[in-house]
Design a protein around this nucleic acid. Sequence first.
DNA 1: CTGAAAGCGCTAACAC
DNA 2: GTGTTAGCGCTTTCAG
Lengths: 337, 337
Amino acid sequence: MSLDRQPTTTARRRVTRQDVARLAGVSVPVVTYALNGGPKNVSPATRDKVLAAVDQLGYRPNAAARALRRGRSELLGIIVPNLANPLFAALAHEVEVAAGSRGVTLIVLSASPGEVAAGLERLAARQVDGVLVATPVRSGDIAAIEVTGLPTVLINQPGAIEGIPAIGVDQYGGARLAVDHLVAQGHRDIAYLGPASGDQRRHEGWRDAMGAAGLAPVRVVETPFTREGGYLAGRTVLASTPRPSAVFASSDQIALGALRAFHEAAIDVPGDIAVASFDDSPDAAYAWPPLSSVSQPIGRMAREAVGRLLDGVPADGTPFQQFPVELVVRRSSVREP
Amino acid sequence: MSLDRQPTTTARRRVTRQDVARLAGVSVPVVTYALNGGPKNVSPATRDKVLAAVDQLGYRPNAAARALRRGRSELLGIIVPNLANPLFAALAHEVEVAAGSRGVTLIVLSASPGEVAAGLERLAARQVDGVLVATPVRSGDIAAIEVTGLPTVLINQPGAIEGIPAIGVDQYGGARLAVDHLVAQGHRDIAYLGPASGDQRRHEGWRDAMGAAGLAPVRVVETPFTREGGYLAGRTVLASTPRPSAVFASSDQIALGALRAFHEAAIDVPGDIAVASFDDSPDAAYAWPPLSSVSQPIGRMAREAVGRLLDGVPADGTPFQQFPVELVVRRSSVREP
DNA sequence: CTGAAAGCGCTAACAC
DNA sequence: GTGTTAGCGCTTTCAG
């Protein structure tokens, strides 16, 4: 008899729509209508009563129940290679903000290229409404995307793959921009630091920019997109004879690593070696010297991706939605910035 | 009559335990038992049948339904001030990995100090099993933590607050470590760069280290924990007369900004000004010169936090679980590293 | 404008 | 070892 007492001031345990309905003196569905602006209208008076009850009880709707019933979770997932990489941290941050402003919550998953499919499975089980994949996908992952049936947008990839929509920049054009700039600074011997096999548009951009300037694209130092890799690549560059007068690093992380190698060897940048790179991640401006880098409009891309995932792909949408890049010139590539 | 046909090879739309049970020729609960190692045992033969059916249909359990039923979501939340800050990116990454290895998924929320309570509400609505709060909490947030009733662990805070358990390092001791080191290098005039009002243990550590060395702790340049703030603080330091011979930056981000200001003014580090800082975030080692910094065992703290959230606080646990810090000495504070 | 009833997919008693 | 039953909290027909 004392079991179903309802406290009048504060909530004790889990408060449900039941409790709110009881306190407001209405039925459960009416609470839904009032709260959701639901499928039905509610008289202002009832609405106020409900809202008051919600307030008084500290009622908080149960997202799991709602997701189960509606089949949508208001959850978005993002798969990144590594959140500790400033570029992906910035991307995740922008996506989180964009999603949050629409009442949607973000799940972050770290997954290296081999783990993308597994990540998609986990997100699908979570009933997310859509997924943003920033880890480079392999062919097997495309199958996983299709199997899960999740709305998916690729980002930070060379382009759309087998019909999966993608958002990104013209990586080839961006790389040419950077290398053209180095050429314009008078450099004739420009090394490429980065991945060189597979679908590497930045590598191709370097190669063609060199070719277009009548230069031989022969200096390639292969390295993954990491600071550590960049450091080793930088040392390799220093060990080569003759030393190139400039390097194009295919990511800021690589450039940062190379910069460290150059500093340790007391090589002046840009005096002895000029450096340009790609991504313009937040740390590029605070490197020393500040890095000239090809900037991607991460914020805009994040908002667009969230929009596409939540509102559906525009019917007339091209599979690959391309955003403009811009070369931000800083000290690392010019004497007088 | 053709409506309930079940495809024999691949799943078409949403596959449920129903479908699996039907195909395996068992009842629904048995599927649960087999999949979960459930409350009941299942004969190996049945188990195999079930697993085969799961495989064949591409069945994926619905996490929303499970969460609704069990009252646990296998979801953890983390609230950070800004994911774009490398320290918090590293923290979130470690937490994600630790959670993932236990089958738990991570929700990331960016929230500045004023938004923590709102973030907690959102996470509570999501039925998360626990929350890690890395954004500095204010008194009002404690109430929110209590109202939501969520298992919460504070991290990156001065200590436990009003009984909310916390994980972290001895910020005061870490700061003293860094400043003592600068003193040992012969510096007598060491400026403090960072927040100085409120509960700022790092500031106190600097002050007391100075006092212990018989030096006057008079040089304070207030700045928030950002690169931009550090840059301005660095310029302020350069404008002061006489110029201090060393600075203790209360975070790496501040140090990075100051470093930039010093470079722009062609001030040699550590020759003209030595620098030491706090956090040892991933970018500290790749700054130039590499930053001497007080290192926090982020990975260990992340794993511990996840453990506490998932397994409950050990009964004998102290409210503030302290991890050791370590000063990593790099070039920024010594002539010969 | 409001209410009664059904069910989303899963798990946990409780039988058999 | 396996099946039956009930219900988590919410939304949605469908009646009134």
